[in-house]
Nucleic acid binder design. Structure first.
Lengths: 136, 136
DNA sequence: GCATTAGGCAACCAGAAGGTTGCATTTTTC
DNA sequence: GAAAAATGCAACCTTCTGGTTGCCTAATGC
C-alpha cells in the first residue's frame, strides 16, 4: 500500500488521531513547532521506535510530514488534513441538525397524527422543510 | 464534569470515528435521524452483532445514545461530542499557527536566540544557524 | 398461543496495533 | 578517523479489534 493512499479518507485521519500517544505527539508538534524524533521521544514515555511508528501512522494519514536535515529528521504538522477532518465533523453536525429539524417537523405535522411517532426512521410521508432550529 | 475547559478524552472520540464502518454509522445517523439496530444493519455489509459492537464503541465515546422503545432500541447521535472534537481540532490548528508565527519571528530575528526563541524546541548550543527549509 | 422480529450474550478467531529489543547505517563532532 | 548521536530495519511479543456464529430472551402480530 502506497504511503499516501486515500488521503481524503476521513476515517484514516480520525484513526490516526485516535491514539493517546499520537494525539500527544500532534499536540506537541502543534504547540512546539517542528521537532526531531529524539526530541519527540523525550518525555513521551515510550521508546524512540514507538514514536517513529506513531509518526509514520500520522504521516500515512497525511497529518505530519518529515524532511531530513543532516542526521536528523524534522517532523512538522500538516494542517490541511486537520482542516479536512474539521469539515468532515462539520458536515456531520450539519446533517444532524437538518435531520432533527425534519424529524421535528414530521412529529408536529398534523399528517403524522398525534399518536404516531415516526415508526422507525424514514419520515418521508408528509415531511415539510423547515428553517433549521436549535432544539437543544 | 469538566465540560468546559479541558476536553475529556478527545482521543477516544477520534478513535471511535476512526473506523470506516463506524463513520458510516455516524453519517447515517446524522443524515437519517435516529434508527434501530436492524435498520442500521441493513446495507451495512456486516452482521447485526458487528453493528451492535460498533454502536457501543460510539456510545462509549459519547457520540451516540440509545433508548429502548418496545423491542427495539433507537440510536441517535449525541452532537456535543462532535462539537468537542471539533474544538479539539481547532485548538490544535490554532496552536500550530501560533507556533509557526513564533518560529518565523525567531528565524527572522536579527538576534536569534533572544526571547523570541521557541521554548519547547530550544536549539542547542551551536545549532541555530540553519533556517528550517520549507522546500517541499 | 405461537411464529416472528429485535436484540443481548458469549465464545471464538485472524489479523492489526502498540510496544520492545538488537543491530546496522549515516552524520556530526572532536 | 573514531566515538557519539539520530535514525532506520527487522524480528518478536502481547493485547486489542473487528468480525462471525450459535443460542437465548423479550416484545409484537396474528
Amino acid at each position: 500500500m502506497p504511503a499516501r493512499a486515500r488521503l481524503r479518507d476521513p476515517a484514516s485521519v480520525f484513526a490516526a488521531l485516535g491514539d493517546e500517544t499520537r494525539l500527544r505527539l500532534v499536540s506537541r508538534l502543534s504547540s512546539g513547532g517542528p521537532a526531531s524524533i529524539s526530541r519527540l521521544t523525550d518525555g513521551s514515555g515510550v521508546s524512540r521506535q514507538a514514536v517513529t511508528k506513531h509518526l509514520r501512522v500520522l504521516a500515512g494519514a497525511g497529518l505530519v510530514r518529515a524532511h531530513r536535515r543532516g542526521r536528523e529528521s524534522l517532523w512538522r504538522l500538516q494542517p490541511e488534513r486537520l482542516d479536512e477532518a474539521q469539515r468532515s465533523l462539520d458536515l456531520i453536525a450539519r446533517q444532524w441538525d437538518h435531520a432533527l429539524s425534519k424529524l421535528k417537523a414530521f412529529v408536529e405535522s398534523p399528517l403524522a397524527g398525534g399518536d404516531a411517532a415516526p415508526r422507525t426512521t424514514q419520515p418521508r410521508a408528509g415531511e415539510q422543510r423547515r428553517a433549521p432550529d436549535r432544539s437543544d
